[in-house]
Amino acid sequence: MKKEPHIGLFIPCYVDQFYPQVAIATLELLEKLGCKVSYPLGQTCCGQPLANAGYERDTEGSSLHFIQLFEEFDYIVAPSGSCVLHVKEHFPNHPGKEKSAKSIQKKIFELTEFLTDVLKVENLKGTFQKKVGYHSSCHGLRGLRLASSSELNIPHFNKAKQLLTNLDGLEWVELSRSDECCGFGGTFAITEEALSVQMGKDRLADHLSHEVDVLTGGDLSCLMHLEGIAKREGQKVEFMHIAEILNQAIR
């Protein structure tokens, strides 16, 4: 019998610190789907904020630490498209560790693509009686290709939609601008504050004009930014990570 694959759960730093409930939902969801999951202790940050700010060269320590923590696993799964993309594309070179780094870059998956492409989940049974707006994070969309981007002339697909529309009662909302950026962008949110907020307001308005009950997505960084604006404006819309919806629905 083939050995059961062992999944290493990668929880990005800000999820660990601010959204533990999303990490728990990710863990529980994978367990419900029959996976053997471990969370290696001692995780820090993958280095993305530094690299995107122009300091990739300062992420050698954090990426080496990441490689050492995760090299033993068969798969690495994270509830974040942008952190996964960073590991895949922007890890600096580590002399002597090239093989491990390459293998990690092949076996790391964002949660929804792990469900659709590796576990090949087709019929999720569950109920979620709400109108849902999905925010496609740009790094998930155009970096990991979790859906067809609106610019390309290719057959339409969307891995998150494929999962969510399985659920009974869930009403999927098509937005006016299906995949425009929310304006978070890491340090962009601070260095270009005015633009960042305006972009967030515009994205939020698109969801609100379609009267969504829940705004969801695969990246909490986008959701944190959008929720921060919604809260400040006193909007009642609820924010959930897609892991929370799926975990709650297939209870």
């Binding site: 929880i11 999820v15 660990d16 610190q17 601010f18 959204y19 533990p20 409930q21 990490a23 728990i24 969370y39 202790l41 995780q43 504050e193 907020v197 967030g200 944190m224 930014h225 929720e227 921060g228 604006i229 809260k231 400040r232």
Partner: peptide, 14 residues
């Protein structure tokens, strides 16, 4: 300035 911060939970996932 224009955004609330997330509520800090009592413990980290770790």
């Amino acid at each position: 300035k224009s955004r609330d911060l997330p509520k800090a939970p009592k413990e980290s996932f770790q």
